[in-house]
């Protein structure tokens, strides 16, 4: 028996919005420790890694490990039926081919049950080693989304360069060039407005804008985003999900032939 209850169903709605542009379907691996998902996009250039810890749920029970293959467009249809303030409970029997999403209004006067068929998906997992990154940058997630959106107008790629002085995002194309520099903030009223840089060595890497724009769909999940970079390895873009977990995106850098 698997049962997971979230008072704020809006969290799962936002998670879905954050992954459905990159993934058509994915396997949600449920265990005693929580719900994990790891999946690459169709082109195998980026990877989504989601972790929702069991202790972050309002109620969580998972007697046996369960892998739920889910069509994300179908799940999205169901999640749209939930109000943001509804309480969500996901339920599945052991070895089930169905998962039930139950939404309850706060006053418990309306209860909705939606059953969704599960799929058998081929699982392909990558082993991602613990890495000490040369640069770890934290910045407001809305700022990151805006920068990526703005620079996407100039070209297909953005160069992210990090030094002690700050971070520079650059793009160029037919219409011209664009550079956006962010300095480390010295004092801000709110932590979520801060730009912080932990740098061992300067790094400059090139990434495809379209993936960064897809990652930015996670912006509603967290006021801050963390970018981790080292030379010649994939970028990690991480959004914390309240007290319950995180979503990480990995993106292979573009390289000169």
């Amino acid at each position: 028996m698997f049962e997971a209850r979230l008072v704020q169903s809006s969290i799962l709605k936002k998670v879905l919005e954050a992954i459905k542009e990159l993934l058509n379907e994915a396997t949600f691996d449920c265990s005693d420790s929580g719900i994990q998902l790891q999946a690459m996009d169709n082109s195998h250039v980026s990877l989504v890694s989601l972790n929702l810890r069991s202790d972050g749920f309002d109620k969580y029970r998972c007697d046996r490990n369960l892998s739920m293959g889910i069509n994300l467009a179908s799940m999205s249809k169901i999640m749209k039926c939930a109000g943001n303030d509804d309480v969500l409970t996901m339920k599945a029997q052991d070895n089930a081919d169905l998962v039930t999403f139950m939404f309850e209004s706060q006053n418990q006067e309306k209860v909705m049950d939606y059953e969704m068929k599960l799929m058998n998906l081929d699982q392909e997992h990558l082993g991602i080693p613990e890495t000490d990154y040369s640069c770890v940058i934290k910045l407001p997630s809305q700022e990151f989304a805006r920068i990526v959106r703005d620079l996407s107008q100039f070209g297909e790629s953005v160069v992210i360069s990090c030094t002690k002085e700050g971070i520079k995002f650059s793009a160029g194309g037919d219409i011209g060039n664009a550079n956006i520099k962010l300095a480390q903030t010295s004092n801000v009223d709110k932590d979520e407005d801060a730009v912080t840089i932990e740098m061992q060595e300067p790094v400059s890497l090139t990434f495809a804008c379209r993936y960064l724009n897809s990652f930015a769909k996670a912006t509603p999940l967290s006021p801050q985003v963390q970018l981790s970079m080292s030379a010649d390895v994939p970028l990690v873009v991480e959004y914390k999900i309240g007290d319950i977990g995180h979503i990480r995106y990995y993106l292979a850098p573009k390289i000169e032939d």
């Binding site: 082109s43 250039v45 392909e124 390289i255 000169e256 032939d257």
Partner: peptide, 14 residues
């Protein structure tokens, strides 16, 4: 030319 490698070029399958 600028190439776009796949993630599998960096991380092994498990």
């Amino acid at each position: 030319a600028i190439l776009q490698p796949a993630l599998g070029d960096y991380y092994g399958h498990i």
